[in-house]
Design a protein around this nucleic acid. Structure first.
Length: 634
RNA sequence: GCCGAAAUAGCUCAACCUGGUAGAGCAACUGACUUGUAAUCAGUAGGUUGCGGGUUCAAUUCCUGCUUUCGGCACCA
């Protein structure tokens, strides 16, 4: 048989040889390095037997696929170790995830703690020393069911496989697992791994099912890579917005209001800059701005469909024997504003914006710093228009979103979410039309997107803008939702060019999504070292000696303040080094040291955060420089 | 909401396993020092150990209920 290699070379081998034998024939050292192979486009184990002409690429620890195989096999080793320590354990699934793997385990009445992870790790280390090989074999469905009859989760998985499908299992020392593979040739490759954390996880991701114990871990081929990864995890912790929020006095949380953040003066300043920026943009883009009430009568929520579809997330209260709900969304209020006037097609697209404070009852376990809260400000807007205007308007919006995120240097991708299975209002035909309009707009721009079936809002399909934070978590921020249902429910109309009353279509959209969440993301994104334009304190002035330099410093901060620059003067009787250290730990963009030279020549001596260099310039020059920076949103 | 873990001074942590009613650094306050790019020295004050209940002669420590937080799951902007 002829085997073709990636470099284009071809070589003849006797048919029926295993990949190990083929590698051995090429060179014994190659055989040693091989982990798996890519045979005709498919990853396979090294003991796979080849009997016909094929294309073949050997995968060594240098190839990215190898790392996935290593981690997958490490998950099996974890299971083997757990089985040896807890013989009654049953196993769910043990897949690969970004940066590692996990295994879901049913331990019966046993409970694992962090402490046990160390023990399991030790047991795994012991097992790698035994150097057992990992062998694949193939069973029929009936054989597989018999083999795993003690393992209820595996039985469930096997039963779902189509009849007649080849079922592979992998066997190593005292452990056999149902698995598609491929795997390492042997456990000796598993040297540098770490079990990271424990969690409960529902079987098959369904909260109606029982919870299994999930063990997370990671593995690398070299110790250096493992250490580097563990350091990265430490780095990410340092960037945690909850930690930085405390250090930089941005916001606080209290047990008197779980999920209801308090904004401290510094955080408030940051927030105000983002809001001002938002207002500026929206005025430029031709939006009208409104504000609707926090609380509205239950009847309104019945009309909008929230009472039926969103009730469990809504807070309610009673006023004079009437039931009221605190708004979880701004749209119904916006509908009332629209209905106040008659509208003409000439006013379209009519863009109405609102920074609206909404409250949603989130599950207690979901709360997480500013990322997941129970009240937050949506930078909402509702755009009313004709059907013909949809595509153009969405294009405009995508351009606006792209600009907005570029200001912050944030990466994002777009997802198109379609009609939910059960919870939706309106006609399926209307939904199809709306979904197509969103897709058409993106397609016509050549904008890529991911399809996310069934994840739309109950009133319409949406485009979600997903931002990536420093922890590589994806957060939904911006959203564009096309709604043909609420205009119907609220009986919105406009006067068309022929004088007839017609139904408008509406877009809901938010750029930041939630100002709270967006700030959380920014904190981690910038590691607390904010660009000057949003930084709570932009300039710190530090006199070398209060007796000689304070008067000049006071004059200096006056002129900075007159120019709208956020500045603080450190007048404490402390050593220079002490005051500088504090300015640095608070990550203030500009640190100004004022001594004799500065006073004599009307200079400021500044150092930019993150840089070592000091620069002395005229006062006016400094002010001009920083104002330019702020204006350019840097 | 579910699984697991945690909660000690304003902050970061120690004492808890093995019960004898808390200790350090930073911050704050007072005084001395008068300083040129990441912590000057000395002193003072600061705690119903998250909240309740139990065991005990005695509970920060052991048990238990609740609250909150953390890591996940489920849910979501």
């Amino acid at each position: 048989m002829i085997i073709k290699f990636p470099d284009g070379s071809e070589r003849n081998f006797e048919s029926g040889k295993s990949l190990f034998e083929i590698a051995q024939e090429i060179s014994p050292s190659l055989k040693k390095k091989c982990i798996v192979a890519n045979l005709n486009g498919k990853l396979v184990d090294m003991d796979t037997v080849v009997s016909e002409d094929s294309e073949l690429k050997f995968i060594t620890d240098q190839d990215p696929e190898a790392l996935e195989v290593l981690r997958h096999s490490t998950a099996h080793l974890l299971a083997e170790a757990v089985k040896s320590m807890y013989p009654h354990a049953h196993f769910g699934v043990g897949p690969l995830i970004e940066d590692g793997f996990y295994y879901d385990i049913d331990l019966g009445d046993d409970v694992l703690s962090e402490h046990d992870l160390v023990k399991i790790e030790k047991q795994m280390k012991k097992m790698t020393g035994q150097n057992s090989s990992i062998k694949r074999s193939v069973l029929s469905k009936a054989e597989a069911l018999e083999k795993f009859k003690e393992d209820p989760y595996k039985v469930e998985l096997i039963n779902e496989l189509p009849e007649g499908e080849e079922i592979s299992i992998y066997e190593q020392a005292h452990f056999t697992d149902l698995c598609r593979g491929p795997h390492l040739p042997g456990v000796k490759w598993i040297k540098n791994f770490k079990l990271l954390s424990l969690a409960g996880a529902y079987w098959r991701g369904n909260s109606d099912n029982i919870q299994l114990t999930r063990v997370y871990g990671t593995a690398f081929f070299t110790k250096e890579e493992l250490d580097e990864h563990l350091n990265l995890l430490e780095e990410r912790k340092k960037r945690d917005h909850r930690k930085l929020g405390k250090q930089l006095d941005l916001f606080m949380l209290s047990e008197y209001g779980p999920g209801f953040p308090f904004w401290l003066p510094n955080g408030m300043t940051l927030r105000r800059q983002l809001e001002n920026f938002w207002y500026d943009i929206h005025i430029k883009e031709g939006y009208k701005l409104i504000q609707t009430p926090i609380m509205l009568n239950k009847e309104l929520w019945e009309i909008s469909g929230h009472w039926k579809n969103y009730r469990e997330n809504m807070y309610t209260s009673e006023i004079d024997d009437q039931e009221f709900a605190i708004k979880p969304m701004n749209c119904p209020g916006g509908m009332l504003v629209y209905k106040r006037d008659i509208h003409s097609y000439k006013d379209f697209p009519l863009k109405v914006g609102e920074l609206g404070l909404v409250h949603r009852h989130e599950a207690s376990g979901a709360l997480n710093g500013l990322f997941r809260v129970r009240n937050f400000t949506q930078d909402d807007a509702h755009i009313f228009m004709t059907e013909e205007q949809i595509v153009q308007e969405i294009k405009e919006l995508v351009r606006l979103y792209d600009y907005m995120y570029s200001v912050f240097g944030l990466e994002y991708h777009i997802e198109l979410s379609t009609r939910p299975e059960d919870k939706y209002i309106g006609e399926i035909a209307t939904w199809d039309l709306a979904e197509k309009a969103l897709a058409d707009a993106l397609d016509s721009m050549g904008q890529e997107y991911i399809l996310n079936p069934g994840d739309g809002a109950f009133y319409g399909p949406k485009l979600d803008f997903k931002l990536k934070d420093s922890m590589k978590r994806i957060w939904q921020c911006g959203t564009i939702q096309l709604d043909m249902n609420l205009p119907e429910r609220f009986d919105l109309t406009y006067i068309a060019s022929n004088g007839e009353k017609k139904r408008p279509v509406m877009l809901h959209r938010a750029l930041y999504g939630s100002i709270e969440r967006f700030i959380g993301i920014l904190i981690e994104h910038y590691a607390g070292a904010f660009p000057t334009w949003i930084s709570p304190v932009q300039v710190k002035v530090i006199p070398v000696n209060n007796t000689y330099h304070l008067a000049y410093s006071e004059k200096l901060i006056k002129s900075l303040m007159d120019n709208g620059i956020r500045v603080e003067l450190d007048v404490r009787d402390e050593k220079l080094g002490y005051k500088i250290r504090e300015a640095q730990t608070k990550k203030i963009p500009y640190q100004l040291v004022i001594g004799d030279k500065e006073v004599e020549d009307n200079l400021v001596n500044f150092r930019k955060y993150g840089e070592q260099a000091q620069k002395a310039v005229k006062q006016d020059e400094f002010i001009e420089m920083i104002l330019k920076e702020i204006k350019e949103l840097k």
